[in-house]
């Protein structure tokens, strides 16, 4: 249903951020991408929905090849991919409802967008999704009045209301406290399962990733160095991804489960 083939990215600065990355996702699953800062996780995700232009390689969403798309075709492809950001990237000065409905911008015309006229079914769906993530009654609050966890919930709803075929999630929990981080991960996982869509989640918290993902991809220096289930993640794998360190504490949980 989704695949990346030989994706390569060199930034104009000369930084070779992706070196021939390939991956296939055949069923709705949660894929966590591990990797130290600068490994190229964000670049990979951004090359998929073309916020960053890949230098070479191919991306397939169902049977549609994305890297060659232009203009309207590109916009239509982007609306099939929901993105969730580390810094939430909500429109701070607009209300929660406007933020949620902005997920439908790819579907409405310019003047309707300008005067905030969104179809009633979108509004209905927005209300029910907000209730689903625990933000019932918040629709007229301004985004800048929300806490980090609440903002990320709005971010999730904004992505889901696009009716995406895949979720691209870039470090969704970095700005959050551990408890909220777990709740947000659980929400993303549950919703992805409910909608029957895969999610690619960049995450630097190894334990959190292992807890919620069905599959782990390890990146180091622009290369995918590991691809397998959480249970196969060992101290050696983590050393391969992150370099030398004492990993015994971090992965104890996995071993506990296996016992």
């Amino acid at each position: 249903m989704f695949s990346v083939k030989n994706l390569d990215k060199t930034y104009p600065t000369g930084q070779h951020a992706l070196k021939g990355c390939s991956l296939d996702i055949d069923n709705p699953q949660i894929v966590a991408i591990f990797g130290p800062s600068g490994a190229g996780k964000s670049t990979l995700i951004r090359c998929i929905n073309r916020l960053v232009e890949p230098s070479s390689g191919e991306v397939f969403l169902d049977d549609l090849e994305l890297t060659g798309l232009k203009g309207k075709d590109l916009h239509n492809a982007r609306r099939q991919m929901g993105m969730i950001f580390q810094e939430y990237n909500l429109i701070e000065r607009l209300t929660v409802m406007e933020n949620v409905l902005s997920g439908r911008l790819g579907y409405v015309g310019f003047f309707n967008a300008m005067f905030r006229r969104f179809p009633q079914d979108a509004v209905d769906e927005a209300f029910s999704l907000l209730e689903r993530v625990g933000l019932k009654g918040y629709h007229n609050q301004r985004a800048d009045a929300l806490s980090g966890g609440q903002r990320q919930r709005v971010g999730i709803v904004r992505a889901l209301i696009q009716h995406p075929k895949i979720l691209l999630v870039d470090e969704p929990t970095s700005g959050l406290d551990p408890k909220t981080a777990m709740i947000i991960m659980q929400l993303i996982k549950d919703l992805a399962i409910e909608k029957g869509i895969p999610a690619i989640i960049n995450i630097h918290d190894v334990k959190l990733g292992q807890d919620y993902a069905d599959r782990i991809i390890g990146m180091a220096d622009g290369v995918i160095v590991f691809d397998g289930p959480p249970s196969k993640v060992t101290a050696e794998t983590l050393t391969m991804i992150y370099g030398e360190e004492d990993w015994s504490k971090t992965i104890r949980k996995v071993e506990d489960e296996e016992e």
Binding site: R78, R79, Q80, N89, L90, L105, G106, A113, G155, Q162
Partner: peptide, 18 residues
């Protein structure tokens, strides 16, 4: 915020107004 709007599939004009 601009990136988030681009990611929804909005075109340039709509990205601008949101």
């Amino acid at each position: 915020q601009v990136e988030a709007m681009r990611a929804t599939g909005a075109n340039g004009a709509k990205v601008f107004i949101f």
